[in-house]
């Protein structure tokens, strides 16, 4: 059998989901945002909820996320996505509502909105991309920047005695009675992408149960902000980010 014959519709096992538009992503080469977008879009596709999903984009690198998801979307002010999502869900309770936020948006300027949406148990999905840096504005220190980690506003490394400690907001929201499912994932190797997608899909399915906020953190890379190649950044992430932000479920629904 010639190889050519394999490329035919009946043999198709993987293609870009239709829930993503054909727009070329503006993200830097190797950035985890693209993969995180794709698995969220795939989960929406596989659940058949494209027409029932409303997303909220943040301010940060993923400010233009609404160009890539082929679902109805709103652009929130910096950090306000959980409040915007609350407004949507309260008037459209039958819809699936998600926010997609970076660490600066979710864990610095939007800390109040994040914690209170989670504490109220808003029936929304929060997808939180944690790459420990402000990417869009050019690599400044984030609330999740590791101790000693260099950024353009911690050029000699984050000194926790003056700059404060990195915030493990995912562990924090897991303590709140309003959260139903809290997990930390990554999307840098195939096995982890598959796991992260399962987590997102589960979180969307839980939304039907009206049991509270589902919170999926994705520890990700920032090759540009970290001044590394994509492959180096993924290795650095494994060696430095994962020990501080360990992967796995933090709060799972009680059986």
């Amino acid at each position: 059998m010639s190889e050519k014959s394999i490329i035919s519709p009946e043999n198709l096992v993987y293609e870009k989901t239709g829930v993503m538009t054909d727009k070329v992503l503006h993200y830097c080469p190797g950035c985890g945002h693209g993969t995180a977008h794709r698995i969220l879009a795939e989960a929406i596709d596989e659940l058949g909820i494209q027409g029932d999903t409303i997303g909220v984009a943040p301010v940060g690198c993923s400010v233009l996320a609404y160009y890539y998801f082929d679902v109805d979307m709103q652009e929130a002010a910096h950090g306000r996505a959980p409040a915007v999502a609350t407004g949507i869900k309260r008037v459209m309770p039958e819809k699936y509502v998600f926010t997609y936020q970076g660490d600066g948006d979710l864990a610095a300027i939007g800390t109040a909105e994040t914690i209170h949406a989670c504490n109220r148990g808003e029936n929304i999905l929060v997808v939180f991309i944690n790459n420990g840096i402000y990417g869009m504005t050019g690599g400044q220190m984030a609330p999740t920047t590791l101790p000693g980690m260099k950024s353009s506003t911690s050029p000699f490394g984050r000194d926790v005695s003056t700059m404060g400690n990195p915030l493990k907001i995912t562990e924090l929201v897991a303590q709140l009675p309003g959260t139903y499912f809290v997990t930390r994932q990554s999307v840098h190797v195939p096995a982890n992408v598959r796991k992260a997608k399962r987590a997102i899909k589960k979180a969307l399915e839980y939304q039907k149960l009206n049991r509270g906020t589902c919170f999926v953190e994705i520890v990700s890379n920032c090759p540009y902000g970290w001044k590394m190649t994509p492959v180096e950044s993924n290795k650095w992430m494994e060696e430095n980010m994962f020990p501080f932000y360990p992967l796995g479920d933090i709060k799972v629904p009680e059986k």
């Binding site: 043999n11 096992v13 870009k16 693209g34 195939p190 992408v193």
Partner: peptide, 21 residues
């Protein structure tokens, strides 16, 4: 082998994968 690992980690959804039945 059509395992799709490459497509699954691709941030830009560049790769389409086929696998014989």
């Amino acid at each position: 082998t059509g395992c799709a690992n490459c497509a699954i980690v691709c941030p830009d959804a560049v790769i389409t994968v086929y696998r014989e039945k």
